[in-house]
Write a protein that binds this DNA or RNA. Structure first.
Length: 427
RNA sequence: GUGGCCGUAGCUCAGUUGGUUAGAGCGCCGGGUUGUGGUCCCGGAGGUCGGGGGUUCGAUACCCCUCGGUCACCCCA
């Protein structure tokens, strides 16, 4: 019986990233790590799964927790869940290890959500992100937001807008939620059960709905910013002043509440105007000053963001200028010694790679014509042939693949010769 | 979870109002060029026509189910 081919395909909603496409990932992740480390952030690697309670702190009312979590029970009977978002696990790590604040970390990690796949939305998607724990300084908010804006700039991503809001603090928000709930329930006529359920359970979740028939009520709803405490308002104004000082453009969006319940104070979202509204959110985050405490830690303020790698690449695609960032080879080594295969190719290729050169070669003892063809396809700058004539003189034939010009180079000086040519290229 | 569209070679797609051995381009491999890529010429490999069932003398095509892809809704990166 042949195996069931359906079982040896990637599961629904997930996908492989292969070369050369994956070269863009290497590039993007490298740029992100460079920028984060530049700003004093260190890498945090946290488990891909946690006790389910860790993620439930994201909010029992949220879609991500209530219907999209990948939950499992391990052989020890523990109730676990695959990480659906980046912040909860990092806060858990902070509470567990109590590092010295301010704790500034970045991550590159996959998230898992059981939902119907579509463009820019997958059951496993990757995010780069940062978190800062242990400070409520508004400059930390500015630093985090500016970091993400700078990352997009590094990538050459244009047409991005930053939406900004404040959710208020522990004192001002409950008051607002009460006012919002009673307003929504008073205007729920004809808007259906879903509206009423949300208005009662989590009225903030009504605000970011895109449903046409709700928009009238949403437009006239009381606004968060009217309920901010003096302290919250001051904080929010300092964040805005900081962004302006750094030249980071933003738009105030009073109805921006985002999908997780832990947010307080500053919230923000970057949208690509080149993408459809179904997947235009390419990165977002905010403050979560109560989250550590909900996990049994001391009261600890925190702020961070997550930015989707797949969506960011989609946004770059929509600009049209898809750059191939794969590193080009310095040389491709061709075995010209015929059917008697020696270890010469292994030794030469190994020596060149040890010397820091990017080098590839053919396998399987293929014909010269085939090997030169592969050299061409590889995009290598030079073809290096180990031929019996040249071998007699301890040399190799080196061909510039662009011009076809061929010279003989002593084997011992080949690495230096190729290095010199690389410098030429960068001038 | 709900709905629309779509599954034919590695990729992009033809095809048959149901009828012999299912095609093309690109890619891949080999040869022309016994030591040299890109152009050209010749040849070759590669297909459970997504899977299962049904209708039929006969199904890649029609029907049902299923799996997968894609797009949208909800929501999010």
């Amino acid at each position: 019986m042949p195996p069931d081919t359906d079982l040896f395909r990637s599961p629904k909603g997930v996908h492989d990233v292969l070369p050369p496409e994956s070269g863009r990932w290497v590039d993007l992740v490298g740029r992100f790590a460079a920028r984060a480390q530049n700003a004093g952030f260190g890498l945090v690697v946290s488990p891909m799964f946690e006790h389910v309670e860790v993620f439930e702190r994201v909010g029992e009312q949220t879609d991500v927790v209530s219907k999209e979590m990948y939950t499992l029970t391990d052989k020890g009977g523990r109730a676990l869940a695959l990480r659906p978002e980046g912040t909860a696990g990092v806060v858990r790590a902070y509470v567990q290890h109590h590092p010295t604040p301010p704790w500034k970390v970045f991550y590159v990690a996959p998230n898992f959500r059981y939902e119907r796949a579509q463009k820019g939305r997958y059951r496993q998607h990757w995010q780069v992100g940062v978190e800062v724990l242990g400070t409520d300084d508004s400059d930390a908010d500015v630093e985090v937001i500016a970091l993400l804006a700078g990352f997009y700039a590094d990538l050459g991503l244009a047409g991005v807008r930053l939406l900004l809001n404040s959710m208020g603090d522990a004192e001002s928000r409950p008051e607002y939620i009460l006012a919002l709930r009673s307003y929504l329930l008073a205007n729920a006529e004809g808007l259906g059960d879903d509206f009423r359920t949300r208005a009662e359970g989590n009225p903030l979740r009504v605000l970011d709905s895109k449903l046409e028939e709700w928009q009238d009520v949403i437009e006239r709803a009381p606004q968060l910013t009217e309920y901010l405490s003096t302290e919250s308002r001051d904080h929010f104004e300092r964040v805005q002043a900081g962004l302006m000082a750094l030249g980071v453009d933003y738009e105030l969006m009073p109805r921006l509440v985002r999908g997780f319940d832990y947010y307080t104070s500053t919230t923000f979202e970057f949208q690509s105007m080149a993408l459809d509204s179904a997947q235009n959110a390419i990165g977002g985050g905010g403050r979560y000053d109560g989250l550590a405490q909900q996990m049994g830690g001391d009261p600890t303020p925190g702020i961070g963001f997550g930015a989707g790698i797949e969506r960011t690449l989609l946004a770059i695609d929509s600009q049209g200028d898809v750059a191939n960032s794969e590193r080009t080879l310095d040389a491709y080594v061709v075995d010209g010694c015929g059917p008697t295969r020696s270890t010469d190719v292994l030794v030469l290729v190994g020596a060149l790679r040890d010397a820091g050169l990017a080098v590839d070669r053919a396998f399987d003892g293929r014909s010269l014509k085939a090997q030169w063809k592969s050299a061409d396809r590889s995009g290598a700058r030079f073809g290096v042939m180990l031929g019996s004539d040249e071998a007699a003189r301890d040399a190799v034939a080196v061909k510039d693949m662009a011009t076809g010009e061929q010279v003989e180079v002593p084997r011992v000086s080949l690495a230096v010769w190729l290095h010199d040519k690389r410098v030429d290229l960068t001038q």
